[in-house]
Design a protein around this nucleic acid. Sequence first.
DNA 1: ACTACGTCCTGCTTGC
DNA 2: TGCAAGCAGGACGTAG
Length: 284
Amino acid sequence: MPELPEVEVVRAGLERHVVGARLTTVDVLHPRPVRRDPRGPAGFAAALTGRRVEAARRRGKYFWLPLDSGDALLGHLGMSGQMLVQPVGAADERNLRVRFGLDRGGELRFVDQRMFGGLLVSAGGAELPPEIAHIARDPIDPEFDDELFVARVRRRTAGVKRLLLDQGLISGVGNIYADEALWRAQIHGDRPGDRLRRGQVVELLGHVRAVLGEALVQGGTSFDALYVNVNGESGYFDRSLAAYGQEGEPCPRCGTPIRRVAFMNRSSFFCPRCQPAPRIPRRV
DNA sequence: ACTACGTCCTGCTTGC
DNA sequence: TGCAAGCAGGACGTAG
């Protein structure tokens, strides 16, 4: 379940292993991962073949490779996507979807079991692909505007967890790190944004940064074997999660069993004592 | 502009 | 033992 730290690990791996290489061949083995490319699979391959990769960039959970054509290869890992660099002749992964031959030897491979992720060629997208122009900067970005974020959160009536997951407000935060940051801030995810004090939002943002930063240092967190970094090594299996996935386990702060509730077709984990539900609960 | 909800996918786990 | 339901969940489209 790659969130910002995992995608950053992938971006760094691509920077190290792919930047400077030319894509000699492109094989789309399944159409779904290129569904968002208006050219279709053949056009996707044609737009990439022979191009040289000039950089590896990221915003939130998206990454892109600017090309010498001025276009960019834009990608999202979804839930289970991986970008692997493998030697030529290495056995195909079970869910190998797209294969790129590299002029320096080796292959870049997009592997994705559940296929929520995907790749596309962004026309003129080297600097910032227009397809992701609506995605906010992430909190690790030096140009992230803290004051703007705080002001926008405090104007919204939606629950603060929804707001943390709103990539147009703040990018890179997914279900796992949202729950962890809320636990640290001792704020219930259903608390409406406009009912939070300024200082609470500032503190919450600080916790979001801390959680992401710690995961970044550890090379990204992984919770199943699906997530593998660009070198094919499984990510760090984090045992330091206080809330996420800890249903029934004692809260590390007060000992109360962590609770799990349904939330937007997924789960939320929180401490019912440290993170009391708002008095006027909103429907989920 | 904002909110809420359904949909897309596969494979592992759970329950009868 | 076998099968089906449950579950994981980010982003997007749509309706209100």
